[in-house]
Structures are given as structure tokens and as C-alpha cells.
């Protein structure tokens, strides 16, 4: 169980970090105002500072109003549901990087339909493969848009 307060603080810290990254990155390019206007780093630098300042503002707001933020951000049940959606999606991206988008699509759709959709294994796998094949024909053949491919496509001789 995560409280709203924790979530607020976590997110504000994340945005402050991103702002800080922009500030640090911008320092490399000069942040002054030359005779031809602002230098390349000036804009990202001040934007970064602004993001950091506003994130700190959110942090202060959250800490001051801490009492009001004790409500639950995510119940255990909700967290489970989000995880059951997010983890397969994460696996999908990892598999896509390793084996290509088509294989990942077939595996992901089959898995989700079978495990979460409670469809019969055969139907789930058949739909997954069918979807991947349809995507192949629409994108690769009809629109000539190449997708990320892996060893399977190479073995089949598909470019």
C-alpha cells in the first residue's frame, strides 16, 4: 500500500531530477546572453531551474499538507492489477528487443489472452500468431514499413 504522500514525494523527486539533468546538461554549452542573443544552453538551463524550483514547491506543498495526503494512492488489489498489466508489457519490450516485434507480439498476445483473458490455450496462441501475421502483411508488405526483426525472421529469410 502506497500513500498519496509517498507518491507525491516520489514523483516530485523524479521531476526535480529531470530538471537537474537539464541544468547540468545545459552548462556544457554556455548559458549567458551573447551579442547574438541567448547562448545554446541558456534556454534549457533556466527551464531546468524552473522545473527544479516548481518540483521543490510541490515537495513543500506535500510536506506541509501531509495530513491531507494520508489517503491511499494504490491499494494492494489495484497494485496487483497494474503489475499484472505492466509486467507482461515490460516483458514484451524486452522480448521485442531480443527477438523482434513480430515474435514479441505473438508471444505477448497469446500469453495475455491465455492467462488473463482465460481463453483456451489453442485459441490464444492461434490469435497471437494471426495478429503477428496480419501486422506483417499490413506493415511490411502493404506499407513497406520495416519493423524490428530478430533471429526468427532471419531464419525464415524475411527481410
Amino acid at each position: 500500500m502506497i500513500s498519496r504522500y509517498t507518491a507525491e514525494v516520489g514523483t516530485a523527486t523524479l521531476t526535480a531530477g529531470l530538471g537537474l539533468a537539464a541544468v547540468v546538461g545545459a552548462l556544457e554549452f554556455g548559458i549567458g546572453w551573447g551579442d547574438a542573443g541567448p547562448e545554446p544552453g541558456a534556454f534549457p538551463f533556466y527551464i531546468g531551474l524552473l522545473v527544479v524550483a516548481a518540483s521543490v514547491g510541490t515537495l513543500i506543498q506535500a510536506t506541509v499538507g501531509r495530513r491531507g495526503l494520508q489517503s491511499v494512492f494504490l491499494h494492494r488489489e489495484e497494485a496487483k492489477r497494474v503489475a499484472s498489466f505492466f509486467l507482461p508489457m515490460l516483458a514484451f519490450v524486452v522480448v521485442a528487443r531480443l527477438l523482434g516485434l513480430y515474435v514479441a507480439t505473438a508471444l505477448y498476445l497469446s500469453f495475455v489472452m491465455w492467462v488473463q483473458g482465460k481463453y483456451r490455450f489453442v485459441i490464444a496462441v492461434a490469435s497471437g500468431i494471426a495478429a503477428a501475421v496480419i501486422f506483417y502483411f499490413v506493415l511490411e508488405v502493404a506499407f513497406q514499413v520495416p519493423l524490428l526483426k530478430g533471429p526468427l525472421e532471419a531464419a525464415l529469410g524475411l527481410y
Binding site: G19, I47, G48, V51, A54, G57, Q61
Partner: peptide
């Protein structure tokens, strides 16, 4: 919250840069 609006817009600018 105005802070949150500024964060959101600022991040957009930073990503665009």
C-alpha cells in the same frame, strides 16, 4: 496546482530541446 503545471510545461520544453 500551478507548481505542477510549471513542472509539466518545463519538462515539455526540456524534452523538446
Amino acid at each position: 496546482s500551478p507548481f505542477k503545471t510549471v513542472v509539466s510545461m518545463g519538462l515539455g520544453f526540456a524534452f523538446a530541446a
